[in-house]
Design a protein around this nucleic acid. Structure first.
Lengths: 250, 250
DNA sequence: CCCCTCAACAATGTATACATTAAAAAATTT
DNA sequence: AAATTTTTTAATGTATACATTGTTGAGGGG
């Protein structure tokens, strides 16, 4: 268990600059206590998703522990957590390997999202949600349009991600939220790497707005169909990019 | 790490009868080595699914460790695994709690299965699978019919479970197999407890046969629709039982 | 050069000891 | 007697030591 005092006293100068930054963040935004497991998990996940820990990279637990500045026990627990989420693979005697995302993985992920999201959207529409209820979804859609206008693709991708996660949150099936969350995470890097290789997401943005409109009008069948098409087109687009640019994995 | 010698030498007489049984099983069906984590996981899961470890039961890690005859470390790892699968909840300072399954949980689970299984069945049908490919599914269906003729509900339920898992295996989406597996496990106890409270599964069995026939004939839309209806009716039936018998949780 | 054997090494699995701290119990105050 | 404070206990989180064992590299022989 970390306390703020621990953070500033326990670490060698080699890592103190970094952990000082972390400690400031902790002090400002969260309670001062964060377990080493949670810390290791968050840091490793952040590095995987931002591609600083590269796909295929592999190191034994003791090396991860050293780099994170803690003992092996919490590191192992963090890695097990990341393994359960499909981001790493623990290979006996070879350590933890950052799982690359293959085209076949993306196919699999999009297939599942293409089944689940339209279904969730349809059920949400059947509840005739009010504008107030859909406010976070409206905000995400607005942000996508604004980001597109600015030409800021990262911002657009973040708003897009938010749209999808928010929709499932509004739907409310906790098991679905958890499962889809790991799917989004697994697909994250591929989506970010390919972000600038694709056409501007004009059509995608319009589709989100249309999905939102259908939700607002309670058109369950309409939103299910459009969402399906949206997912199918997005999958096709991404897989084409992987093929066009000869990217076997990400 | 267990070896067979360890299994027979390490444990007090209080648990030796049980572990002797386990060791025989190990010797016959698996390599002699099984880690304590895997052992703890399998045993705990078995007890949860068979309702020997009751929903709501709660004990701290050290107590589980003592009962399993090993140190806390592998037990914690096994419990974390079970938590990730939705079967237990780790409550700080209160220990691991066996998660009861509420009616709302079953609603959630059936909602997801109702979206995923028909989708997988439709995609499988689109591949025009041969009879040989569907052999394990045919076998499961045959077994359901045989069990129904014998009036053996447990056998029927096992074959039913096998049908559903096999179908997803044949479909081949690994992420779906994993996710659905945990959903089946979570629903298992509820289904077993209610097995004798429901009508004989005559209609259900026929529906499975019909699903199989539609798969064999490559009728994607037909199988998707029938599977949806199948899941919807099964969900309704089970939820009615929970309500009729006043079962708040299982 | 290739193959085999064996020893060394290190990675994971596990047990145990220690640190932290929340909850419960005991003691004290009102 | 009830409320508050203090102390104790024990559960989880963590570090470290030990056990097991798979892999690698060195050495020797053909």
């Amino acid at each position: 268990m970390y306390t703020l005092k621990n953070l500033t006293m326990r670490f060698s100068c080699a890592t103190q600059w970094q952990l000082l930054r972390e400690s400031v963040k902790v002090a400002v935004t969260k309670p001062a206590r964060i377990s080493r497991v949670d810390d290791a998990y968050a840091r490793l996940k952040g590095e995987i998703l931002s591609n600083r820990l590269l796909p295929g990279f592999q190191a034994p637990e003791p090396e991860f522990a050293e780099r994170l500045g803690m003992s092996r026990t919490p590191v192992r627990e963090a890695l097990l957590r990341l393994e359960a989420e499909g981001l790493v693979q623990l290979v006996p005697r070879r350590g933890a390997r950052i799982l690359p995302v293959l085209a076949s993985d993306m196919t699999e992920i999009y297939d599942l999202l293409g089944a689940l999201e339209p279904h969730a959207a349809a059920e949400l529409a059947r509840r005739n949600p009010s504008k107030a209820e859909l406010a976070p979804l409206i905000a995400a859609t607005d942000d996508m349009e604004a980001a597109l206008d600015e030409g800021n693709l990262e911002k657009w991708a973040a708003a897009d991600d938010r749209f999808h996660r928010t929709l499932l949150e509004l739907h409310g099936n906790r098991r679905l939220i958890g499962f889809a969350s790991s799917l989004y995470d697994q697909a994250h890097r591929a989506r970010m790497v390919t972000l600038r290789m694709r056409d501007k997401p004009v059509r995608s943005t319009r589709e989100h707005r249309d999905i939102l409109d259908l939700l607002l009008s309670g058109d369950a069948e309409g939103v299910e169909q459009l969402f399906r098409d949206h997912r199918r087109r997005a999958a096709s687009e991404l897989l084409n990019i992987l093929e066009t640019f000869g990217l076997p994995q990400l």
